[in-house]
Amino acid sequence: MSLLNFRKPNAPPRHPALGSFLHGYSIEVMPRTAAKVADFRALLPEGTRVYIAHIDGTPIEDMVATAKRLAGEGFAPMPHFPARLIADQAMLADWIARYQGEAGVTQGLILAGCVSEPRGAFDSSMQLLETGLFDASGFTRLHVAGHPEGSRDIDADGGEAEAMAAARWKQDFSDRSDAQMAMVTQFAFEAGPILDWASRLRAHGVALPIHIGLAGPAKLQTMLKFAIACGVGPSLRVLQKRALDMGKLLLPYEPTELAAELAARKATDPGFPIAQAHLFPLGGIKACTDWATAHGGVATRPARRAI
């Protein structure tokens, strides 16, 4: 199956399990990219969960305005809460109040953040969760980050043991939280490392549903730039190998083969903790949603889901 063959949006899925894997997919945007979209309803299935990435330097006002807009267009905004950008508990409480008061937000992605040194009292997602503010504010869904190929922050200090201990802590927190929890992963380019990591989580007693990050269609040069910046691990070799092939260098990458392999595992092992796909539209939101639709992403669905 070629990675390079795009299908028209109304074409059937290429793999019998791929449509099920993409059903209910989520997608990630930034305020500045969202501002370029005239109407998300022309691109996304009804009720799609839209993560709003909080990049260092983005004003909270822009984040809240984006969440308000998405909610108004019928989507479920899930803003990032990056621990290392939050000065203290008062700032966290203020952010939560703004999101809820202006945009009706009841879900968030809780993560360490993209800076190496904390700007205040918090260094990890666990510290944010331990404040109890999300449960006290009635958040119904809390997602945490997963790193199938490792995290530069964790691997530098404690490696696999520390990563699994953190995942186990998040599982324990899920057991005592009123919110539904799941783990959403950084994107990668090979199924093997993702599946091995998910198996290790299960062996360590971590049963959180996993939302697998997929990099949406993009030029190879664009994909390499984002992959290096985001700390993608050994599966980066997939892109590097393609970059050496002059016949493919100028052709776009799309995640069809990777998604099909993950979908097949999900279909054949119902107990495996892969829940659904989460899309990073690195080559543009429309290219990403067109790809999802072409491979089985549904046109409409209920706004509330129990995944």
Rank of each mutant, 00 (worst) to 15 (best):
A264E: 14
T48Y: 13
L109R: 01
E149M: 13
A207R: 00
L258C: 07
A87V: 13
L43K: 02
G205R: 01
S125P: 05
D88C: 13
A11D: 15
D269F: 10
Q89N: 12
W95N: 05
S124R: 14
Q180A: 13
G57A: 08
G146K: 11
H80M: 06
P79H: 00
H147A: 10
G138M: 11
D153K: 04
G150T: 03
A42I: 05
Q107D: 00
E130K: 15
S199I: 00
L251R: 15
A67V: 05
Q89W: 11
F226T: 06
R200Q: 09
L111Q: 04
L258S: 02
W95P: 00
A203G: 01
A292Q: 08
T140L: 11
V37Y: 10
E162A: 06
G216H: 06
G108M: 08
E257T: 14
A299R: 15
A259N: 03
H278F: 12
T140E: 15
R305M: 13
V115F: 02
A267V: 09
R152K: 12
L220E: 07
A35L: 02
R7V: 04
P270S: 05
R242L: 14
A121W: 11
Q276F: 08
A267I: 09
L111F: 10
W197E: 02
G19W: 11
W169D: 03
I154E: 05
A145M: 07
G192S: 12
G101I: 05
A306V: 15
R141D: 15
F122K: 04
P45R: 09
L129R: 07
